[in-house]
């Protein structure tokens, strides 16, 4: 599974993407964030306030309750500020 990071989350992690293989009990976006936080202190710090982390699964904007099983790309990013 490819994970993409954007904006200040990308800067704080010092990477725009990574390949990961989460264990099978990682069912939702929320589980994935917990799992990524458990293996990386910088990620845990940057995502402490979960309400500031938005997610997209396979290029669709989703809630943290959305499933990630079989996902090709999961993107994690701060609230959007376009327009």
């Amino acid at each position: 599974m490819k994970i993409l990071y954007f904006a200040w989350l990308r800067e704080r992690l010092n990477r725009g993407e990574e390949e990961v293989s989460p264990p099978s009990d990682v069912a939702t976006v929320a589980d994935l964030i917990d799992w990524l936080a458990s293996r990386d202190e910088a990620f845990a710090l940057a995502t402490q306030k979960r309400s500031l982390i938005k997610a997209a699964v396979d290029e669709k904007l989703v809630a943290h309750t959305a499933p990630v099983a079989g996902a090709r790309v999961v993107a994690l990013f701060p609230p959007m500020t376009g327009g």
Partner: peptide, 18 residues
């Protein structure tokens, strides 16, 4: 403004911030 994935970074006389 809230749902399209764009993120603005401003550069002013005092530096750059999100």
């Amino acid at each position: 403004k809230t749902d399209a994935p764009f993120w603005k970074q401003e550069t002013g006389p005092d530096g750059t911030h999100w």
